[in-house]
Amino acid sequence: MIVPYRLSSERLSSNMADPLDSALDLLRRLNPKDVKKNVDYLCQLAPSLTEELLESVDIPLAVKRCTKTGRDFLCCDYNRDGDSWRSPWSNEFEPPLDDGDGVVPSDRIRKMEVKANEAFDVYRELYFEGGISSVYLWDMDDGFAGCVLLKKSVSPSPKSSGSWDSIHVFDAQDRARTAHYKLTSTVILSLGTDADNLGTMDLSGNMVRQVEQDMAVEDDGSHVANIGKMIEDMELKMRNLLQEVYFGKAKDVVGDLRSIPPLSETNRDKATHREMISSMAR
């Protein structure tokens, strides 16, 4: 278990060359389960770093309700304007901005955004059997960019919980009959239990992967299909890595620390195994 040490302004100012690097270095040494709380502390200690921290650090996605459609949507830095967030369902900010204005995509990009939200709503139901999804797109000079957000939280019992947050940020550069896509995917996973027979366990962390690919494009609908395929493949690879590498390693460590059979029986099996290997070698 990672034991977090006290946050202080002296620690942030210890590296005067780059306070942002100091803050990020501090976050890497704290429990990833508390990353949102720790980012809030850092923003209070160093308000000048707020924007850079929110852009650099991925935190579990927050959920808000669209008052116009009654549907939930996910909040991130890409649909934020001050203390308001744009709903992908109504294209309006919640709560409304004081000046009544905000950055919204062009008509062409908005139509693609609507199609992408419909497509990933089906994807979410098929793969996660619940949860919330949101897609946000915005204009760029040579194409467009966007992010796909997926969140699923479960609480099987009062003493156990788990959450999956995936953040896929991409940009698409239009070319002749093709488009160049660059995708950066982040998965934030948190699992915890406090059962009487098992004790307290906390398994939390995040994973980041990147990929670039050129794909054929016929119309705007092709962009939605291409991005969907890339994200589907990326999530499949990341789920396999989490299951086989990270969970497998944790299982091996726990298996070495705790043995269900008696220690004498385990040692006898190991000795028999070594004897068989030696006999085969001879």
Rank of each mutant, 00 (worst) to 15 (best):
N197P: 06
C43R: 03
S13R: 11
H168M: 07
F120K: 13
R28A: 08
G192F: 03
S134F: 04
V148D: 02
V103D: 00
S56A: 14
W85H: 10
M276I: 08
M280A: 05
G192D: 02
K68F: 14
V245N: 15
V114Y: 14
E55Q: 10
T184A: 07
G146Y: 11
A116T: 13
D21C: 07
G102T: 05
A119L: 10
V114D: 13
E218Q: 09
V35D: 00
G70V: 08
K182Q: 12
V35C: 00
S190F: 01
S22Y: 00
G130T: 15
F144L: 08
Y181D: 01
D40W: 14
K151A: 02
S153R: 10
C66W: 05
S278G: 03
I277A: 14
R274T: 00
E113G: 09
L26H: 07
L198A: 06
D25T: 07
V148C: 12
R29C: 09
S278A: 07
D252T: 15
L53S: 02
R124Y: 02
P261D: 03
S190V: 02
A23S: 09
V154K: 07
S185V: 09
V154G: 11
S163G: 05
K68H: 14
A216S: 09
Y181C: 00
T200W: 04
G131M: 10
Y78F: 15
V39M: 01
F247N: 04
C43H: 01
S222M: 01
S160Q: 12
V253W: 07
R110H: 13
A62R: 12
D233A: 08
I231W: 06
Y246N: 05
C76W: 06
A23W: 06
F247C: 07
L42E: 02
V154Y: 13
D101I: 07
D101G: 07
T193C: 06
R282P: 10
E10W: 04
D58M: 05
D214W: 04
D98A: 11
T186V: 14
N267D: 14
M215R: 03
R80V: 05
Y136E: 06
K159Q: 08
M280C: 05
G146H: 05
D219R: 10
R282Q: 11
D196R: 04
M234C: 09
E232P: 01
P19A: 01
V154W: 03
V135A: 10
A172P: 00
M276F: 02
D34Y: 03
S222Y: 01
V148E: 00
E52Y: 08
R124F: 01
D40E: 11
Q210N: 08
D233E: 15
A250M: 13
I277Q: 15
E212L: 13
L198I: 14
E265F: 09
F247H: 04
A271W: 00
R11G: 01
D81N: 06
P261C: 15
R86N: 11
M238T: 02
L126V: 12
